[in-house]
Structures are given as structure tokens and as C-alpha cells.
């Protein structure tokens, strides 16, 4: 029973981790850009959810549309207007660019909203339900379900839609895609936009789970990194498996060697994986 509860905790947490990481993984995989802005995009999504709820009464589960939409536009503009100018430059250049943009955006949020921690307090909290002695915190469960749902939607979009196939084509071989008539720079911008959209949506969902503050961005970015490496870079399925794996490993790690070392086990596995299977659990496939 104890193990079942810990497994539930881990899966519920892991779904959220997957949602945080999937956009980051997509951008890294397709654009070869390590988007340091990603954590701050998640935080911005959380703030949008907070203000939507406090001022407009829109539930965070619904405001994923608003935050996703705003972040898509922001991401598209950032890529089209700035990062596209240095695409093809060494990865360090784009890294420094997104790092600089992150400093600007994060400090902007800090100035605008202060470092105070806020939370979305639902007027009608869902509470928890107990089934067979196992506790299901419903807000987390629904947030995780939505997070996984969005991730599956992204998978389907990449696999079935015209723009999705173009993204995958650019990821496989940008030059060949360009020869086939794909506007590569536009696809870059769309991909970055989709990555930001996923970050914004994740932020909305996290708003009812975690306290909201600009200071959280580094933690979210760290999670995105770990999940990508665990699951395998650039694939939606990899992010999903990596996220769930991280959540479950962290939970059982905390159980067996104490809450202080939950992440220690996760990071030890990460190092082992880097040594023995550097392509991640799902390998370097990802051409959905």
C-alpha cells in the first residue's frame, strides 16, 4: 500500500515534469538551441494563470489556452526577430543569447510582480479523494492528466499535421527540408513558439500546485534539462518517459534514503545513464 501511494505521488509529479520539459526538448532537438528562457516562460505562464484567475475568474485548467496562446506569440516573435539571426552560429552563441534574454525577462517579471510568492487559491478546491486507502490529490491528478494530454496532443500534431511533419523534416535535415520547399526559418519560429506554448501551459497547470515566483525559473529549467537527458533529446515520447521516470525515481529515492536525498538518486541515475546510454531511455529516435 505504501509503495502504491509513493508510485501515485511519483506519477502525478512526473506528469508535470514531462509537461515542463517537452517544449524545451522540442526546441533543443529541432533548433539545436538550448533555450535558457524556458524556465522563465513557465513562470510567465503561471503568472498569466494567476492573473486570469484573480481578475477574470478563469480557472487555471482553462487558462492554459490563454497562457499557451500568449507564450506561443511571444516565442514566435523571439525566434523570428532575434534567435533566427544567429541560427547556424555555434551553439554557445544561441545559448548566450537566450541566457541574456532570460536575465531580461526574469528581472522584468521580478520588477513587475516582485519576488513575493503567490498561489492560486481555488474558490472551490477539488481536495483529495481516497480510493482503497490510496490518496489522490485531485488538483494534482487533473493537472497531470491535462499535462499528459497536452503532451500527447503535441505528439499527434507532430505526427499528423502538415506543420508537424515540416517540423520533423527540419529536425531530420534542415537543408533537405528547405529543398523540399519548407520555409525553414518560419518552421524554426513556429517550433520555438510551440515550445513556449508548452511552457506556458505547464506554467498554468503548475500555478495550482507550486507557489509562483520568478525565482522558480531555475528549478524548472533544471528539471527540463534532467528530463531531456533521462528520456532522450528532442522527442515527445522521451520527455514523457523521462518526466515520469524522474518523478517516480525521486519519490522512491525520498522514501528509501530520506527526503533529503530524493534528487540524489535521480541525479546518480542520470550520471549513470550519461555514461552507459548517453542517448537517454528512449534513444535518439524522436522522428515522430
Amino acid at each position: 500500500m505504501l509503495y502504491a501511494q509513493i508510485l501515485i505521488n511519483g506519477l502525478v509529479l512526473g506528469g508535470l515534469y514531462a509537461c515542463i520539459a517537452v517544449g524545451f526538448s522540442l526546441v533543443w532537438g529541432v533548433l539545436n538551441v538550448i533555450n535558457i528562457l524556458h524556465g522563465t516562460f513557465v513562470v510567465l505562464g503561471s503568472y498569466i494563470a494567476y492573473f486570469c484567475y484573480v481578475h477574470l475568474g478563469i480557472h487555471p485548467f482553462l487558462s492554459i489556452i490563454v497562457s499557451g496562446g500568449i507564450l506561443f506569440v511571444l516565442g514566435f516573435l523571439v525566434q523570428a526577430g532575434l534567435i533566427n539571426r544567429v541560427m547556424g552560429a555555434p551553439v554557445l552563441t544561441t545559448l548566450v543569447l537566450t541566457f541574456g534574454l532570460e536575465l531580461l525577462l526574469n528581472n522584468g517579471i521580478l520588477l513587475a510582480f516582485s519576488a513575493d510568492y503567490r498561489t492560486v487559491q481555488l474558490a472551490n478546491p477539488l481536495g483529495s479523494t481516497i480510493i482503497g486507502g490510496l490518496v489522490f490529490p485531485l488538483e494534482r491528478v487533473v493537472a497531470t492528466a491535462l499535462a499528459l494530454g497536452l503532451t500527447v496532443l503535441l505528439y499527434v500534431m507532430l505526427a499528423k499535421s502538415r506543420i508537424g511533419r515540416a517540423i520533423v523534416a527540419v529536425r531530420m535535415d534542415a537543408e533537405a527540408a528547405a529543398l523540399m520547399g519548407v520555409n525553414v526559418k518560419r518552421i524554426y519560429a513556429v517550433t520555438f513558439g510551440v515550445g513556449a506554448l508548452m511552457a506556458g501551459a505547464a506554467g498554468s497547470l503548475l500555478a495550482i500546485v507550486f507557489p509562483i515566483s520568478p525565482l522558480n525559473s531555475t528549478e524548472f529549467l533544471g528539471i527540463a534539462f534532467v528530463v531531456c537527458v533521462l528520456g532522450g533529446l528532442g522527442s515527445v515520447a522521451g520527455a514523457m518517459v523521462g518526466g515520469l521516470a524522474l518523478g517516480v525515481i525521486e519519490s522512491f529515492g525520498a522514501l528509501f534514503i530520506g527526503p533529503e536525498h530524493g534528487l540524489t538518486i535521480a541525479f546518480t541515475l542520470l550520471i549513470l545513464l550519461l555514461i552507459f546510454r548517453p542517448t537517454g531511455i528512449m534513444g535518439r529516435r524522436g522522428y515522430e
Binding site: I6, N9, A254, P259
Partner: peptide, 14 residues
């Protein structure tokens, strides 16, 4: 004890 930056306390509270 929990580590600085811990984002989940589920196991401890279970």
C-alpha cells in the same frame, strides 16, 4: 530533512 530547492514532499508526508 529535505534539500534546498525540493519541489515535492509527497514521500515524506506519505
Amino acid at each position: 530533512e529535505y534539500a534546498i530547492g525540493t519541489m515535492d514532499h509527497g514521500s515524506a508526508f506519505t
